[in-house]
């Protein structure tokens, strides 16, 4: 069986700087993969290349066997990829319900189907503030809203860019729990992360990127055992 998402030789530029120099790895069905590395290593750019927010990426990005590199973001999203950006980007003038409406897409075979009510079961806080504008929410609540908004598109694969960045440790714990629930629903997740404690508690596999190249690709257990790789690429 082919992987759900497969990258091969992906190159990408940010403005005039080349960020990715031939990235290749895959995410299997139902798998949680942590894309790790320092700041500036290319994690966010990889995520953006998958969802189509990087102009003119080179190389191959396949989702369920279909080539998606160079397609427009909306077309990629409609194939079943949900993207949660690192800086949350909730629509601050729109209410919680309106934020969810923007993310709404038709039901998709083979992916969990989400409604606002189901999402409020997962994020009870959001259910209590349906008419509150996104701008009047705390950072943790916004992070929940941005995930809920993406789930409204009924994705098969969720891209989570630095979900723990800037959040208080208690919120990070709740985030880890949420990701476990989503995995239980059958969703595949690719998350970028610098925090090994957080990634280690939820990911099946770790992929380490450095200077735009993949340096490590193995199970999370293997990374935990490999002190050399950890100190060389993650500096922990």
């Amino acid at each position: 069986m082919t992987a759900l998402l497969e990258l091969a030789g992906v190159e990408a530029w940010y403005g005039r700087a080349k960020i990715l120099h031939g990235v290749g790895f895959s995410v299997g069905h139902g798998e949680v993969v942590a894309l790790m590395g320092r700041n500036g290593a290319g994690k966010s750019t990889t995520m953006k290349a998958v969802i189509g927010l990087v102009p003119e990426p080179q190389g191959s990005i396949r989702f369920e066997g279909k080539e998606i590199a160079g397609r427009e973001p909306f077309a990629i999203a409609r194939l079943g990829i949900g993207y949660v950006p690192e800086d949350r980007r909730v629509f601050s003038d729109l209410t919680v319900m309106e934020n969810l409406e923007v993310g709404r897409q038709p039901a998709r075979a083979g992916a969990p189907h989400w409604t606002p009510e189901r999402l409020f079961d997962l994020f009870p806080n959001l259910g209590r503030m349906r008419d509150r504008p996104g701008g009047a929410m705390s950072g943790g609540e916004q992070q929940m809203l941005t995930i809920a908004r993406t789930l409204m598109g009924n994705p098969r694969l969720l891209l989570l860019d630095e979900p723990s960045e800037g959040l208080a440790p208690v919120i990070v714990e709740a985030m880890a729990q949420t990701i476990r629930v989503l995995k239980g629903e059958g969703l595949s997740v690719l998350l970028s992360e610098q925090n090994l404690h957080f990634a280690g508690s939820i990911a099946d596999r770790a992929v380490i990127i450095e200077k735009g190249l993949i340096r490590f690709d193995d199970t999370m257990a293997a990374l935990k055992a490999d002190e050399a790789a950890r100190s060389q690429y993650l500096a922990v």
Binding site: I51, G52, L53, E72, P73, F74, A77, R78, Y83, P85, R89, F91, S92, D93, L94, E98, N99, E101, V102, G103, Q105, R149, T150, G153
Partner: peptide, 21 residues
């Protein structure tokens, strides 16, 4: 609602599956 959302962050609207064009 999509117009109001796009007024704030059109790129994000597109990444959520809305045909920006």
């Amino acid at each position: 609602v999509l117009i109001r959302a796009a007024t704030q962050d059109r790129e994000m609207v597109s990444a959520l599956g809305v045909n920006q064009r």
